[in-house]
Design a protein around this nucleic acid. Sequence first.
DNA 1: TTCAAATGTGAGGCGTTGCTCACGTACCTA
DNA 2: TAGGTACGTGAGCAACGCCTCACATTTGAA
Lengths: 208, 208
Amino acid sequence: MARKTRRRRPRQKRSQQRVATILDAAAELLEEVGYRALTTNAIASRAGTSIGSIYQFFPNKNAVVAEVVRGFRGQLDRLLEEILTVDLARSSVTGLVEALVDNLEELAAATPGFGSIFTGGKFGGSAEEEALELEKDIIEPLSDLLAEAYPDVSDEQRRLAMLMVTETTKVLMSRAAQEDRETQQEIRQELKLMLGLYLSTRFEAKKG
Amino acid sequence: MARKTRRRRPRQKRSQQRVATILDAAAELLEEVGYRALTTNAIASRAGTSIGSIYQFFPNKNAVVAEVVRGFRGQLDRLLEEILTVDLARSSVTGLVEALVDNLEELAAATPGFGSIFTGGKFGGSAEEEALELEKDIIEPLSDLLAEAYPDVSDEQRRLAMLMVTETTKVLMSRAAQEDRETQQEIRQELKLMLGLYLSTRFEAKKG
DNA sequence: TTCAAATGTGAGGCGTTGCTCACGTACCTA
DNA sequence: TAGGTACGTGAGCAACGCCTCACATTTGAA
């Protein structure tokens, strides 16, 4: 019952290339129209292939998106390793937040579809799970870093703060994306200020 | 071309009652499943009537939602008139933000569907326009109040601050709604703190 | 009471979308 | 060169959602 049809794994170069093209097409369309309006036919068309080919390698539409997200997670993890290796005893949370926002913006600008995934939310199935993991990829190392630097802050308080940071960042980056370059910059500026003030109050004040 | 079919306006009590029931059903379903999963058949079924009846009085699904939103605007306007008649020379923006968050929460709790509309975004057509108006209903009087109290803050800066307040409030109220009562309370607490800090920095500092 | 206007109904038209399947082509090994 | 496997294709199926329309019922003014 309810066993999902297993799909072929691409063995020849030809099909591996095709899968890559399909994923690129999906990412581009995600950027352009978002998840809701993303259709399998559009992906096939953009990839210059047929719908049948998609279903040779993916069990359903959601799985294509899940795979796209998995790719983003790799890129994000590499990025975070750089900026989250700061010594918070020297610098402040303010600087950390600024680096985070700037780097996320760069990643989003360089990676079609990343913004839609990071800020988008509400696909279902495995794509949603993968997107949640992507969020965890940010939260957990950041949380660990803060836990070490500010041991007097409770786990619960830190958990709340992480929620504030991610949710606020997601909307405002998403909202910024709709505006012109200048306004985008301004919004990110305000975001950094707001998060900086908030985190300083919640963490710096309790500096051990 | 493209002329939208005009619909009947309910003249008899019977139909007026039916329209009210349809709107209530739509609001409830909006609360339960959100706009994306809202179907005309579900509205009819919940309202205990037939799809045909809906289309007697509404040109399309979106118009039903638009009408629901119009109802919410009325309630919101009444609410805002109370809390936005404060003298900012006496109290601070912090208190204003706290009152705003608390009252929005109360309204959302007492009004099925209000949360989905306020935080939801992205319907299309007239419902989206109406939802934008609902947002303006908050922004404009608040902006005017701040303009009067802090004349040294530029229009542009105030516009940005309003964007920060509304977007942040929307996500966090929305996110809070998924959590248990206690966490909801905590999130609102953090929201008030964060907005309070931000607005104080952007406004109080320039007190004329 | 009469009848036109208002209202109520729901089967089904129509367009869309995810996905299948039967068939054809490319590749690879022997 | 043969034949098996991997891959490619796109017409079309099934499900679903919005909305229409032909017909039935109720209302209220004359």
